[in-house]
């Protein structure tokens, strides 16, 4: 489906399958994401795109197949897996900021506890990241005091603080009020421009057009199309994709 050699891939999935009981949610998924590439995964709900995203840092286990990050196969539970997850940033639909920690602590906790960075250094880096996503002045507050859009930007800063090799976004704007979606997308577009490798599950077609190198269209647990945004939006090949896009465009 993709042309690059597997050794070139930062994230590679090979013949990945997963079932939830009877339901076959991931069917023989093959996907390679190169360093610096921004891949947007779209598709109707229930198509398995969130499961795919979560499988990449093993928040979901897979039944068979192989997932490699930077050449290394995902380890089973334990220390090795924790180490690998530190290299994979994850942003959730529901933000999941640590509710009992301040905004600053949310961002510094990983570097201090997982990487052993000194508190002074972690604080400095965290403040820079919070400034960068536009919530520096919120640092001493608790997550619940922030708006959804602000919380999601903090969540992005928290993931970036670990200096990840790749960032996963699992529907990062789906839980946001419309007026807050752009402030989060702006941060993501900026991140894409700076060369971060990103896998983004989203319904935001505008983001896909603007920032994606590739669009992966999933339906019924399968990757149906894998193309550049121009190709996909102007000339979708499969009937599933045509159907999906026509439903979007009627509104």
């Amino acid at each position: 489906m993709t042309t690059q050699v597997p050794g070139d891939a930062l994230v590679s999935l090979k013949a990945v399958n997963k079932h939830y009981g009877q339901l076959h949610v991931l069917k023989d998924i093959n996907l390679n994401v190169r360093k610096g590439e921004v891949v947007v995964v779209i598709g109707p709900s229930g198509s398995g795109k969130s499961t795919l995203c979560r499988a990449i840092n093993r928040l979901e286990t897979i039944d068979d197949g192989e997932i490699r990050i930077d050449g290394k196969e995902l380890p089973a539970e334990g220390k090795e897996l924790a180490k690998l997850r530190a290299d994979v940033g994850m942003v959730f639909q529901s933000f999941n900021l640590f509710a009992h920690k301040t905004i600053l602590e949310n961002v510094t906790l990983g570097p201090i506890k997982v990487k052993g960075v000194s508190k002074a250094e972690a604080d400095k880096d965290a403040m820079a990241l919070l400034e960068r996503v536009g919530v520096g002045h919120q640092a001493p507050k608790l997550p619940a005091q922030l708006s959804g859009g602000q919380q999601q930007r903090v969540a992005i800063a928290r993931a970036l603080a670990m200096k990840p090799k790749v960032m996963l976004f699992d529907e990062p704007t789906s839980a946001l009020d419309p007026e807050m979606i752009n402030e989060v997308l702006d941060v993501m577009v900026q991140l894409a421009k700076e060369g971060m490798t990103m896998i983004v599950v989203t319904h935001e077609m505008g983001f896909a057009r603007k920032a994606a190198d590739r669009v992966v269209f999933m339906a019924d647990g399968q990757i149906v199309e894998d193309a550049t945004p121009e190709e996909f939006f102007s000339n979708p090949k499969s009937s599933r994709a045509k159907d999906f896009l026509s439903k979007l465009l009627t509104h």
């Binding site: 840092n57 928040l59 220390k79 924790a82 180490k83 690998l84 997850r85 530190a86 290299d87 994979v88 940033g89 994850m90 959730f92 529901s94 999941n96 900021l97 640590f98 509710a99 009992h100 906790l109 990983g110 506890k113 997982v114 990487k115 969540a155 928290r158 993931a159 670990m162």
Partner: peptide, 27 residues
């Protein structure tokens, strides 16, 4: 404690003991 708290903690590379003592038990 919402399961997302543990998932977020795991996704920044915390071990089970850290997830438990730093994130889950305090809440």
């Amino acid at each position: 404690v919402p399961v997302g708290q543990a998932e977020a903690a795991r996704s920044i590379g915390m071990k089970f003991s850290q997830v438990l003592t730093l994130i889950i038990l305090p809440q």
